[in-house]
Design a protein around this nucleic acid. Structure first.
Lengths: 152, 152
DNA sequence: GCCATCAACCGAACGGTATTCGGCACGGGC
DNA sequence: GCCCGTGCCGAATACCGTTCGGTTGATGGC
């Protein structure tokens, strides 16, 4: 994980579809060298995949929210089961198992606030392990698409 | 945004580096048709980019957390300034401006809990607009990499 | 029913690309 | 000094992206 690897990771985070030749030219190395580096990064698990980013609104997801859940009892089995259940719902994009005042935080997106409300009522209020949840509707969000290595 | 577009988006979300020919073969269409569809999806803003996914641990980010902030006064200028400030910090990956009990939720990652603690103390406690914050350390997180269109 | 029109799709062709592989330079161990 | 391993390079080959002319199928006017 030297400076060259960092540069490759940085560039591929920004644009994963640029050609290997272009990337090599930008970095001032041979295409074959660049390719070998990328393969090593994938083999080491540094780069886990390449994904197209999609506008949620184009997928009829105009409203996003973070739902904070309190779960009881706090056993491994209950947490695991609720996590799997939530992750399987189409409105859910991410599930965080956390410590603190809440036990689980779920990122959801829905066509409208009406749909969101109905979704929460239908899918969560009836479940026994859910003793309560709060909804934080997302007004704005800034996403850093390039994550740099941290030097402690 | 017909079924073919949805299929293209689905496949590119899963693997953005598969060749256009492979994708066309999978979908049973000609490469030229597939290319034209993808170009239209980008032009319409449905697909916003292609990004490599990176393992945070490989970037020396072994600890992740969601920080819940309460900000005062709740004016546009203060919110905007804090959002910009937070988004500029290297440990921060996402900033959510939300409604509910909290005003802002920030996704951060750090090399260790020690680093995280120092980071929070150094970068946030001294700021006047921060009247309080809670930390939710992330134990697990499941990420749905493929987002399907919702049909209301 | 018939025809004009338009959009979408296809297939071939060309220029560029990914990927492989043999060779070279450099540095560490002995 | 010599050997060996590692990383890099450059050329070659098979493959791919992209363009473009032609075809098909649906739609609307009469």
């Amino acid at each position: 994980m030297d400076e060259l690897d960092s540069a490759i990771v940085r560039h591929l985070q920004r644009d994963a579809r640029q050609t290997n030749r272009d990337l090599a030219r930008t970095l001032g190395i041979a295409p074959s060298t660049c390719l070998e580096r990328i393969r090593a990064l994938r083999a080491r698990g540094v780069i886990t995949g390449y994904h197209a980013a999609v506008d949620p609104a184009a997928l009829n997801r105009h409203v996003q929210a973070l739902i904070h859940f309190q779960i009881r009892p706090l056993s491994r089995a209950v947490i695991e089961a609720f996590k799997t259940y939530a992750a399987g719902l189409p409105e859910v994009s991410t599930v965080y198992v956390v410590t603190g005042g809440d036990d689980m935080i779920v990122h959801v997106s829905a066509p409208s606030v009406d749909h969101l409300h109905g979704f929460l009522m239908d899918k969560f209020t009836a479940r026994r392990e859910v003793v309560g949840f709060r909804t934080s509707v997302i007004y704005q969000h800034t996403d850093k698409q390039v994550l740099e290595p941290l030097t402690p």
